[in-house]
């Protein structure tokens, strides 16, 4: 247990000293920082409220007339708060964060590593994309169709993630985490395809 830098009172992982109310060195753990249990499913409204409330308490604008130490802690704490909010409000970044904290290795998903079940579809999609880029707009309907299919796949992956999130949150089952990692990789691949098709469709429409 750490002691307060200001008054020496022992601290229980609180942002402020319970005794002298001075700002303490912030924890880098996103969940602990926000006062949350490490769950994969989060209530976004509650998260937003915590973010706003803590911003009001911690922002450097509020510490300009304080000691250099408190100013520094305010800067660090707000940076962690902002980083935490950015990561935890996005279900994909949040899952990646938990995986990393739980010791899973999440390498960069390379676009070359096509999930095998998608191989054929991706091959055709790339052909259609080539045609469109070459100025042949006859590939457009086919692309729109493929686009809808991939968006549906992405939604499917998101639904699967929600299920796995609930499973992990209730059981703490690491198998569920391993599965989350697999779905995340697949989703990332699909997401890249979706945004690429989106970009090409927008470019050819313009």
């Amino acid at each position: 247990m750490e002691a307060c830098w200001q008054c020496g009172h022992p601290q229980h992982e609180s942002l402020f000293c319970q005794f002298c109310n001075s700002l303490q060195r912030p924890t880098p753990d996103y969940y602990r920082f926000l006062g949350l249990e490490r769950k994969l499913s989060l209530d976004s409204k509650d998260l937003q409220n915590r973010f706003y409330n803590l911003s009001r308490l911690l922002h450097p604008d509020r510490y300009l007339r304080r000691t250099p130490k408190e100013r520094q802690y305010s800067l660090e704490a707000t940076a962690i708060l902002n980083d935490a909010y950015r990561v935890l409000r996005d279900h994909v970044l949040r899952a990646e964060y938990v995986l990393k904290e739980e010791g899973f290795n999440i390498g960069e998903q390379r676009s070359e590593n096509v999930p095998p079940e998608l191989l054929e579809e991706v091959f055709e999609l790339n052909l259609a994309l080539e045609e469109l880029r070459g100025g042949d707009s006859s590939a457009r309907p086919q692309l729109c169709e493929a686009y809808a299919r991939f968006v549906a796949m992405q939604d499917e992956a998101d639904n699967r993630l929600s299920e796995l999130f609930r499973r992990y949150d209730t059981t703490g089952d690491r198998e569920a985490l391993a599965e989350v990692r697999g779905v995340l990789n697949r989703r990332k691949y699909i997401r890249n395809l979706v945004s690429e098709v989106e970009k090409e469709l927008a470019a050819s429409a313009a």
């Binding site: 450097p60 800067l75 660090e76 940076a79 962690i80 902002n82 980083d83 909010y85 950015r86």
Partner: peptide, 8 residues
């Protein structure tokens, strides 16, 4: 478009 202060 990351809220600042931000860190890495």
């Amino acid at each position: 478009n990351s809220t600042i202060p931000a860190s890495a």
